[in-house]
Each structure stands twice: as C-alpha cells, then as structure tokens.
Computed example of a mutant assay.
Amino acid sequence: MNVNINDRLIAGFWRTSLWGKSSKELNYFINQLIECGITTFDHAYVYRSEAAFGEAMAHSASLREQAKIITKCGIRGVGPGSLDAKNTSHYDSDKLTIIKSVDNSLKDLKTDYVDTLLLHRPDYLMNVQEVNEAFNELKRSGKVRDFGVSNFNVTQFNLLQSALDVKLCTNQIEFSPFNTEALDNGLFDQCYKNQVSPMIWSCLGGGKLFDESHPVTSRLTKVLNEIAEEIGAVSISQVVYAWVFKMPCQPRIITGSSKIENISPLVDSIHLTLSKEQWYQIWAAAVGHDVA
C-alpha cells in the first residue's frame, strides 16, 4: 500500500443539492479543487449529486481525464426515481440493482466509466455470489475500474472479499476525535493487514469540532491549539487532519465543504507531522482519559 500524496484528500459532494451552485459555478469549484491537488470526487446515487456534477464537468472537456470519480450504490430511498423504493427505504445489493445503478450513474455523470464503485451500506440480505457476478460484469465491460465498500464492519468486509474475484480497494468509514471506534473494532487493523487504504468521512465530527458546548470539544480545543502552535498549523482543523493521516493504514480524508477557502488549507495538513506523544495527547482529550 503506497497512497500517492495527491490522493490523500477527496472532495465530497453529498451536499451538492444544498450548495445552490449553477453548473458553471460548480465547474469553477471543481477546477479550483484540481488546482489545489484534489482530483478525486465522492458521490453516491442517494446524494442526488451526479447529474449536477456531470453537467458541470461537461463545461470542460479535459476535466474527465483529470478527475477520479467515486460513486456508491445499494441504498434505495423512497422517491420517484427508477431505483427508488416505493414505500420503505432499504438496502439492495442484488446483481441487477448494482448494474442498473451504475448505468444510471454513468448517464448522470456523462461518462462511460467510474474509477471506483462502493457498496454504500452492508445489505443484511446480501448474496455475495450475486455481488461477485455484478462486479465481474462491470469490470469486463470497463464501466468500473475498482471496487470497494462503505460502512462495512470487519466480518462483513471479510465475507464479501472471500466471494469476490476482485480485491476490494477501500472501506469508507467514519473516524474522528468524536468517533474513535475504528481504533478498537478491528477496522484499521484489517485495512493495514490487507493493504487497503480506508476513506474517512466526518473527520471533524460533522461540525462538532466547532461546537464549544460539546463535552469532547471542550477538552479538545486547548490541546489542538497547543499542538497547532507546536507544529506550525494554521487551524485546529489542520491538526485533526494530521492526526487522522498519522494512522499507519494511510487513510484518505473526504472533505465536505463547498468553499475552496475552507478546503485549500487542509491540503497542507498532509505535510504536517505529529509526534507519537502529540497524537496520544489528542486521543486522550478525545476519549477523556490517558492510557492505562
């Protein structure tokens, strides 16, 4: 596992419908991200982000060659679309559903392939042989280059991998000072052992980092500010990103902002180095106690 430094940050587009950007404004934002060195873009069928992204990309013919597109399938929310549920949102990893979802994504994204396809959530009724058949067909057709999962636990990941002819390239999971479960539930250990680079969502705790009324934030802020001064960081967000990047399994972080001024400083966090003691200072503030 050797993740290119330019691939450590991923731009998340799950809030696209709330940003209020025109297709030309979104095109400008995508170009700004690429200029910053961020060339991977995260989508999902349920985000309703793909059509807007496809329209934005169409303004610049060269963008598709520079961009790496991630999308996800497997959640059918209630709605009017052909892949939506009629009455009850549910997970669906059937072969035909996976293939149909990819075809829908390709149409909306205005491209003939996606770089990475993830199963968005574990389907309790998943037939792993059907998933294997779907992945093989998508691989043979050139519609998908790599495959992974999102929000799978260790046993779910292992079960699926045991049935696949392709190697899963990632598991997209939540991790932050507000949710440290991946340190102890085996997910990071599994990624390191299998040479899989996880993608991290909500690494700033979904905004909790800036909520001083939150009990974890009240412990973290002082420590993060002290370490920011020690390592030359310009914000506590940079320090948290550096804390996540310190993990040996070489995680990649998904951003969530629509403002380049919020994202561009985070690129520098890739080059910030925490000592082991500094890393554990943040961990202790996060969990509320020192090591035993």
Rank of each mutant, 00 (worst) to 15 (best):
N4D: 13
L9H: 04
I10R: 06
I10W: 02
A11S: 12
R15D: 08
G20P: 00
E25I: 06
Y28M: 07
Y28C: 07
F29Y: 11
I30R: 02
N31C: 12
Q32T: 03
C36P: 03
F41E: 00
R48Q: 13
A52C: 02
A52E: 13
F53Y: 08
A56W: 00
A61V: 12
A61R: 06
S62D: 14
E65Q: 13
Q66H: 10
I70A: 02
T71V: 03
T71G: 06
K72C: 08
K72D: 07
R76T: 08
G77Y: 14
G77D: 11
V78R: 04
G81Q: 11
L83V: 05
A85H: 09
H90D: 07
Y91D: 07
D92E: 10
D94N: 06
D94S: 09
K95C: 10
I99C: 02
K100T: 06
S105K: 03
L106Y: 05
L106R: 05
D112P: 06
R121G: 05
P122E: 03
L125A: 08
V128A: 12
V128W: 01
E130K: 04
N132E: 11
N132G: 10
N132F: 02
N132H: 04
A134R: 07
E137T: 08
K139M: 07
G142R: 11
N151H: 04
T155Q: 14
N158S: 15
L164D: 15
V166Q: 13
N171F: 09
N171W: 10
Q172F: 01
I173M: 09
F175Y: 13
S176R: 03
P177V: 07
E181K: 11
L183P: 01
F188W: 10
D189E: 14
C191K: 00
Y192E: 15
N194D: 15
N194Q: 15
Q195F: 05
P198Y: 02
M199E: 15
S202T: 07
G206Q: 12
F210M: 11
V216M: 13
R219S: 04
L220S: 09
V223L: 03
A228L: 06
E230T: 12
V234Q: 15
V234P: 00
I236Y: 02
I236E: 02
S237W: 01
Q250K: 09
Q250L: 08
I253H: 04
I253Q: 06
I254S: 00
I254H: 01
I254L: 11
G256Y: 01
S257A: 09
I260G: 02
N262F: 06
S264F: 05
P265A: 15
D268C: 09
D268T: 10
H271I: 02
L272W: 09
Q278V: 12
Q281R: 15
A284P: 00
V287G: 05
V287P: 04
G288N: 12
G288I: 09
H289F: 15
